[in-house]
Design a protein around this nucleic acid. Structure first.
Lengths: 248, 248
DNA sequence: TATTATTGTGTAAAATATACACAATTAAAT
DNA sequence: ATTTAATTGTGTATATTTTACACAATAATA
């Protein structure tokens, strides 16, 4: 324990210790906290995002992220999972905190701090439970303006995803369990906004040796079918290595 | 504007629009928010962190991060800068939001969500304004236990820094304006916890061409003095390029 | 049976990363 | 003045990784 008591030059005052932590906390300003989820999907070689119409008169007609206020004694992660569950009916989705947005005027109803979460899910694997407020999937690139600061949040999460997908095996959450290398490449190209060399892309994944050939082929494609693969999460987790490489 | 009105299958209910955003917000649970700053410095080839004694009786003797509650209508970034200014007297320090910690029991006084910030500063360039509560610099590696969940926050910020320093030119904020390549290498080695090949390290930075030789040498060193450099922030900002490189 | 679209594959060249050693310089000790 | 100790500054050969690029094989459709 780092508890050694020093009689150093630093101890200029006798410490005035606070006994009542509850009272201390009670003196802090309190404010509402929300969680907003950027839910990405992937379909027809396009990155999609799940949005709802804003239910504020002031933002009538504008699209909004899926969010809710955080309950007393609710963890932020729990709140984000709750929102996802409520809207998509899905349980085991990929979810990660991105960052807080705190501009005092970001919400017309007053001061609200929001925590942005990024979620990735396989559009086929779930059905939207409710279509209230026109909940549905949009092509990411078609979204130009949104309610509140949600466009800024969306863009922040997109940039976060672009970076993240290059360093971590997140992308598979957007694909079916079994996918072809073509689908995987389309995913990377859609998210990164670049086109990649097909042979080099395949070689790259081959050299990682993290894809399991499931012994099946694409079906109903009007051309030579490709092999289907699964991502080897177990092997990835076991061998997760830290890279040292300075580059900026 | 993304406002096209669809008469699609999605519009199953007539939307019930909320007129009074203030009233809406008033119905949300409110909670205290704090900002905790992990302030890193670098001295004698060691990564340091600026800590204070906890002023809670319950954590008597334990070290604590520098934090404060967020004021009404105060941005999180502003709160973090305020804390830094109050404690170190420094204005233009590097500061970045890392993430929120929200466990309902993380604070003994009740529910408090905190936003962790990571700050990097040059220890020589400032004097601690106040030594209240034994504010001073600790070797990062010596800190084993802390008040609240602050050890977890510290470790999260350390990991964040390890990753970040490899991809962005943050490290220079920890060094004097003019520094030798040796100091720079010591910094990277201390943060990453590895030892690096001196010639390759220098070659790497030489190839980036982002260090300006200021034409001065180290002084008062008991050996051949090294050249001093400045980091070329202008050039870096101009040429900032996006790398595409899948690797995990 | 031909056409269309796409898969699966390899190699050569370029760029980058790694491993490694010695002469030059300064301060300090003699 | 000379030696010693510590560290700087530098280059090359090898291994690894990245890039650019073309053609035969396969399935569905016409």
């Amino acid at each position: 324990m780092t508890k050694k008591v020093t009689n150093s030059v630093f101890a200029t005052h006798a410490p005035h210790l606070i006994k009542d932590a509850v009272k201390l906390i009670a003196s802090y300003p309190k404010m509402p906290i929300t969680v907003d989820c950027v839910i990405f999907g992937f379909e027809e070689s396009e990155l999609k995002v799940l949005l709802i119409r804003s239910d504020l008169e002031m933002y009538k007609g504008f699209w909004s992220l899926l969010g809710d206020n955080v309950k007393d004694n609710e963890e932020l992660d729990t709140a984000a999972y709750r929102i996802l569950k409520e809207r998509t009916g899905m349980n085991d989705v990929y979810l990660d905190q991105v960052r807080a947005f705190s501009h005092p005027k970001r919400h017309p109803g007053g001061r609200v701090i929001t925590l942005a979460y990024c979620s990735l899910l396989n559009i086929q694997h779930h059905e939207l439970k409710i279509y209230a407020n026109e909940l549905h999937w949009h092509s990411f690139s078609s979204i130009k303006e949104m309610a509140f600061d949600h466009k800024e949040i969306l863009d922040t999460c997109h940039t976060w995803l672009q970076k993240r997908i290059q360093e971590h095996p997140l992308g598979f959450n957007l694909l079916p369990d079994k996918f072809s290398l073509r689908e995987l490449q389309n995913l990377y190209e859609a998210i990164l906004g670049v086109s990649l060399d097909r042979r080099n892309f395949r070689k790259k994944f081959a050299s990682m040796d993290l894809l399991i050939d499931v012994g099946e082929m694409e079906e109903d494609v009007p051309h030579r079918p490709g092999k289907l693969y699964k991502f080897n999460f177990d092997k990835y987790e076991k061998n997760k290595r830290k890279w040292i490489g300075i580059d900026f």
